[in-house]
């Protein structure tokens, strides 16, 4: 198996604060990794270091391929329709033709179940629909690694399902993805590997059963005790 990403001893400091404190992390092609942990544990920063939105302070990182990202607040381009949102980057960055971009966008909209919304503006859609368009937009660039930054945290509980369904479908299709999430159900059922982060460090790491049933560290036990009692900590940024 080929590593798409390998990070060694990654440190990120913000004004003297160590947000990431020596993180070692790697992911293989086709793997789905969930990253869980309390607010401020460095999960989102880790993702942003991977695609370069945040510059690492020190450490080694090898990334074999391109990344795509799905954000907590969708960040769709509001002045473009759904299909334009999806077509824009492939046309501008990859310079593919308009007709090819459109064909691709149409199939992606179908995959996320929003074919009928192709000419709607994002602000006319529900949050769950917007996030599904955002997933399609990221996939249109055919990234080697998909990053999900709390993709369902800004959604009402009753509509997180539609977004998680799409993510499950992607995991089944062996899209390589790192999912920062508060959805323990998703982490447990869908991921190949779960990583628990706290205070900028990876505290525990393993297959879902090991993490959720044979929990070793006290910190993870405490965390799971809190979140599995239906308490979902909000990541305040």
């Amino acid at each position: 198996m080929k590593h798409i990403l390998k990070m060694e001893n990654i440190v990120k400091e913000y004004e003297g604060n160590r947000v990431l404190d020596g993180v070692d992390f790697s992911i293989e092609k086709g793997e789905t990794v969930s990253v869980i942990g309390p607010s401020g544990s460095g999960k989102s920063t880790l993702l942003k270091c991977i695609n370069g939105l945040v510059k690492i302070t020190s450490g080694d990182m090898i990334l074999n391929g391109s990344t795509g990202m799905v954000f907590q607040h969708f960040n769709l381009f509001p002045h473009m329709t759904c299909i334009e949102n999806i077509m824009y980057a492939p046309m501008k960055v990859k310079k593919i033709s308009k007709s090819d971009a459109e064909a691709k966008a149409v199939s992606l909209l179908e995959m996320v179940g929003l074919s009928d919304k192709r000419d709607e503006y994002p602000n006319h859609l529900s949050g769950g629909q917007q996030q599904r368009v955002a997933i399609a937009r990221a996939l249109a660039m055919e990234p080697d690694l998909m990053l999900f930054d709390e993709a369902t945290s800004a959604l009402d509980p009753e509509i997180t399902g539609e977004v998680l369904e799409v993510m499950k479908k992607m995991a089944k299709d062996h899209v390589t993805m790192i999912v920062v999430t508060h959805e323990m159900g998703f982490a447990r059922e869908v991921s190949d590997r779960v990583i628990f982060m706290d205070k900028g460090k990876i505290v525990e790491e393993g297959k879902p059963q090991e993490i959720f049933q044979n929990t070793k560290s006290e910190r993870l036990k405490n965390f799971l005790g809190v979140v599995l009692n239906d308490y979902v900590p909000q990541d305040t940024k």
Binding site: G68, F77, V93, R137
Partner: peptide, 18 residues
Amino acid sequence: IDKGQYDAAFALGLSKRQ
């Protein structure tokens, strides 16, 4: 303009000019 717009553009590989 929301900072998230810049993040999304960056994540999609758009240049500063684009």
